[in-house]
Amino acid sequence: MADTLRVYAGILHARWRIAMSYRTSFAFEITGQAIGQLTEVVVIALLFTRIRSMGGFDVTAVLLMYGFSAACFGLADTVVGQVEKLPQLIRSGELDAMLIRPLGLLPQLCLLDIQLRRLGRLLSGLLILGVAAHRAPIDWTWDRFLLVGLCTVTGAVIFSAIFVAACSISFWVVEGSELANAVTYGGTAFASYPLTIYDRILRRLMAYVLPGAFISYYPTVTLLGIRDPLGLPGWFGWLGPVVALLSCLVAGLIWRTAVRRYRGTGS
């Protein structure tokens, strides 16, 4: 573990130095990522010029949900987003090169190609979350602070698990990355809006199969102390850690199976 962290620090340092030697283009990339994220805020703002509530939630609540979704996705994307490259790595044989190093495959995948430009997305996500939380009528007791912090982390963990599980498909399907995109980016887009606007099948899928609802919807409901229109109890927002743990277990299992298949164990 300590070694992994050392390698992590080393690669971050090296990447940072590279980014700083191309300062202008790095700034450009970061801004680009941030603007991309903020476009969605424009969309929400424009929608709310014509509606007063979306699925029973006002603009503050929707922005809060969007903020959770954006911040968690940004964090997950920065830490594990590199698994997206899996199809390329398999095709070029670089994955084999990773297998002859004395580190786990997944840590290598996440660490070694870390993209600092993704910080743009993370920072804008955190900014949106911060502004939304600040504007919301919340009585800031310590447990609510804790809830925001906890949910940002567990939400990111859930997203990461979705990332890893979805990208594992590349071991089976050649064009797996786009399918994975449907799940990962689709998942973020889904988690950005109140669960109540979707029809029943989609809702169930999102709340229980891909646990996107635990990233933004339940935390927001709990945080604002609103009665859930779908009738689930208020403490549901605190279930994040449990769901995150479960997601990791499932994702880990899928990943293991995929890698075993790739290396040809027992096939």
Partner: peptide, 27 residues
């Protein structure tokens, strides 16, 4: 194969966008 994957992605986003925009007609 890529086309199939693309269609699935497009459709997922279609569902989400249809749902958000449908809220314009409620209430």
């Amino acid at each position: 194969q890529a086309a199939l994957a693309g269609v699935i992605t497009n459709s997922v986003f279609g569902l989400i966008r249809a749902a958000t925009l449908a809220t314009l007609f409620t209430g």
